[in-house]
Amino acid sequence: MAEQKHELAYDTKIEGDIVVTRADAAINWIRSHSMWPMPMGLACCAIELMAAASSRFDIARFGAEVMRFSPRQADVMIVAGTVTYKMAPAVRRIYDQMAAPRWVIAMGACASTGGMYRSYAVMQGVDRIVPVDVYVSGCPPRPEALLDGLLKLQKKVAGERSVQQLRVPESAQAPHSSL
């Protein structure tokens, strides 16, 4: 509880235990620095995703070390690897099961565009079935590139109008999450 001696003003200085800021800024700050990834490890890129999570590159420095294999607990789906047509519906269903707000990183050439696999079995970019926020280039991208992608996403999240979007639009509601 705020004590009487501090005066409330439009000021972002920390005064006692009160911080005054925009709700958007506070929400986005919290969201962007505790991104829990859902590692959608499909192919080779998953190995670099694991490398990014382990000792040398240490994704924990950016608050995203909490890999959750349950989509319900995740904020950002990192699609790491080739999305085939057989796998695509599963990717979409897992995306549908994630709670809003949710973001998607397409990691690597295959997830972004189909990459070197221009063939009958490979979906030419995961953005055909889920909305993608950040594309990371490379085949596979180095862990640094993934970290950069993550920072880009943090920047994007920081600019979102979160308070207005608190009411979930109908299009983002998950129709398939019944099972």
Binding site: L42, A43, G81, T82, T84, K86, M87, A90, Y117, S119, Y120, A121, V122
Partner: peptide, 11 residues
């Protein structure tokens, strides 16, 4: 299996 079938042999 087959969720990562990319058609290598055809390629």
């Amino acid at each position: 299996v087959g969720y990562l079938h990319r058609g290598d042999e055809k390629i």
